[in-house]
């Protein structure tokens, strides 16, 4: 669970990280202001299945660059989800880049936990398939 780019508002990312932990998932969370290269490095060393990007103030617009950087490091099996304020006219940008899911404000905890568990299982299967 992380925030890339420039924004610092972390109410959402702290909440989601905590309730994924409560649901029994192993969560690595960072503070805001992360560089894409930092997130890729962390994904590699911590054997991450799903990356959650929290975005309030348009940092979602550099998520396609994160996706490209993951593929370049051979980490294409990792699912990426974005949560927060994503205007309708940016949804294609994210889906075309391969983002698995966009969680808009008001999404229930149950829905987020269920989807993250499913994506994590899929990512583990996909990684096994590539070995």
């Amino acid at each position: 669970m992380t925030k890339i780019g420039l924004d610092g508002h972390d109410r959402g990312s702290r909440l989601v990280a905590n309730f994924l932990r409560d649901a029994g998932m192993e969560v690595v969370s960072t503070g805001p202001w992360q560089k894409i290269s930092d997130v890729v490095g962390l994904a590699e060393t911590q054997a991450i299945d799903v990356i959650g990007i929290s975005s309030l103030a348009s940092d979602h617009r550099i998520v396609p660059k994160l996706m490209a950087a993951l593929v370049a490091r051979g980490l294409g099996h990792i699912a990426v989800v974005v949560g927060g304020i994503v205007p309708d006219n940016d949804l294609d940008l994210l889906h075309d880049a391969g983002v698995s899911q966009v969680f808009h404000p008001g999404t229930s905890r149950e829905e987020i936990v269920g989807k993250m568990q499913q994506l994590a299982a899929d990512a583990q299967m996909s990684e096994l398939g590539t070995l």
């Binding site: 420039l6 202001w33 103030a57 348009s58 940092d59 617009r61």
Partner: peptide
């Protein structure tokens, strides 16, 4: 905008983020 809020000049950040918020 947030480039300012992090203490950067506009030529130091990803151009996609300029003027967005």
């Amino acid at each position: 905008c947030n480039s300012h809020m992090r203490g950067f000049d506009p030529d130091e950040v990803e151009p996609e983020l300029l003027g967005t918020c």
